[in-house]
Design a protein around this nucleic acid. Structure first.
Length: 410
RNA sequence: GCCCCCAUCGUCUAGAGGCCUAGGACGCCACCCUUUCAAGGUGGAGAUCAGGGGUUCGAAUCCCCUUGGGGGCACCA
């Protein structure tokens, strides 16, 4: 099917929030996939949710990925900056004409049709189905409108959304991590919308159009996307494009084993950076969440991971994010740092301490380097430097006599 | 409710029929080192491999069922 095409993978973040630790891991796996199996790693920004997408988030995501050391071969490098690569642009809002063309093609072949149902109609349908204990699905009210009926609605000024006609029958694929998965298209919720009434395309549609034109051969993403996969496969077929292989990674979990969420866990990569986690530790930890070397090695650098990564050892079940283990790994990596490197990395944290008024002066490189022998092995994170040694750089150490207790020696 | 997936110590995992009286790591406990705290070292507790049926001379590993857990069901991505 696709084995003869050169390997291409991608990470397709949506700038609707700060870089999520789960997105970072998916990016890492795609990166390792490309490096290990000799492929091209593409970054594409999925910004079609215009209401929620911001330049600020775009920057956070690109910066975070760069910070981790993951380099991509094609795509935008900086927020609002230019793209690299032969398949640009790599921001979906700049690719609107290609979705429009694909939509027209589907429409022309009656593989898709305009739907004039209002949100109220849809809501009522959903409620009725819920009351009848039926799964929610589009009832197909607009599936067979005549040309006259359509133009009548257009004449009323109503703009239709475009729905893809879901063909009956089972859809199956051989998932690279979980073997064969088969889903009957009857369970897909009916004909789904691919273009909003306002003309902007939707996720399931843009991914397929882009993955097709960007010649993506392996779609490596989170398990939460398995239910989207049959829809996307159907679209690939409708667009007469070979389907890519799919690999669904296990989810990163909260301690209660539900999908990792902001409510229950710290999910923004930027927060880990702020607290003084090293990129080496994060990369190492994330790689080991849902994957293992198959051996007992566990302290691994990015380049070592690039050499060892394999699809066979990707886990099927979700993995709880264990912050204590991350901290332990972080300590290991801090202790591995060369003195000058550690001094450099500590600097921003000292500056922050001073900005916050917790210390009065920042030590020079020599002083800091001299301190390293007793500090390096005690630092769980770079951010701990203030608590550990901050008293050295304050003008006056407040002493509470009550805390000073006489000590008896043998 | 419907569809799909998953299932080895608390957690991350090794394990692809005999090497498993199930190995490693985090965390936990103890000891050593140490005039504190760490780091490091050594040892320990911790999994009847979710349960039940098969298949096999032999199953954590293969099959089936049950149970449990999770994910998804938008004009979000």
């Amino acid at each position: 099917m696709t084995s003869d095409r050169p390997l291409r993978v991608r990470i397709a973040p949506s700038p609707t929030g700060p870089l999520h630790i789960g997105t970072a891991r998916t990016a890492l796996f795609n990166y390792l996939w490309a490096r290990r199996y000799g492929g091209t790693f593409v970054l594409r920004l999925e910004d079609t949710d215009v209401v929620r997408s911001t330049l600020e988030f775009e920057k956070d995501i690109l910066d975070g990925l760069h910070w981790l050391g993951l380099t991509w071969d094609e795509g935008p490098d900086v927020a609002d900056g230019p793209d690299r690569g032969p398949f640009g642009p790599y921001r979906q809002m700049q690719r609107l004409p290609s979705y429009e063309a694909a939509a027209q093609s589907l429409l022309a072949r009656d593989l898709a049709y305009p739907c004039y149902c209002t949100p109220e109609d849809l809501d009522a349908d959903r409620k009725a189905q819920e009351a009848a204990h039926e799964p929610p699905r589009y009832v197909g009210r607009c599936a067979h409108l005549t040309t006259e009926e359509r133009s009548a609605r257009e004449a009323e000024g109503r703009r239709g959304a475009l729905r893809f006609r879901v063909p009956p029958g089972p859809v199956a694929w051989d998932d690279l991590v979980r073997a064969r998965v088969e889903i009957d298209s009857a369970n897909l919720g009916g004909d789904f919308v691919i273009v909003r009434a306002d003309g902007t395309p939707l996720y399931n549609f843009t991914v397929v159009v882009d993955d097709a034109t960007m010649e993506i051969t392996d779609v490596v993403r989170g398990e939460d996307h398995v239910s989207n996969t049959p829809k996307q496969i159907l679209l690939f077929r409708a667009l007469d494009h070979p389907e890519p292989r799919f690999a669904h990674l296990p989810l990163i979990l909260n301690p209660d084993r539900t999908k990792m969420s902001k409510r229950k866990s710290q999910t923004a990569l930027a927060d880990y950076i702020d607290q003084g986690f090293l990129r080496e530790a994060l990369v190492n930890y994330l790689a080991l969440l849902g994957w293992s070397t198959g051996t007992e090695e566990e302290i691994l650098s990015l380049s070592e991971l690039e050499q060892r990564f394999d699809i066979e050892h990707v886990q099927r079940g979700g993995a709880v994010f264990d912050r204590e283990r991350l901290e332990w790994l972080n300590g290991r990596w801090i202790r591995r740092l060369a003195p000058d490197d550690l001094v450099d990395r500590l600097r921003p944290f000292l500056e922050r301490e001073r900005a916050a008024g917790r210390i009065d002066q920042i030590p020079g490189d020599d002083e800091l380097r001299a301190l390293l022998p007793i500090v390096q092995e005690r630092l769980p994170t770079l951010g701990a430097i203030g608590d550990l040694a901050g008293f050295l750089w304050v003008a006056e150490v407040p002493l509470d006599p009550a805390l000073i207790v006489p000590k008896r020696w043998d």
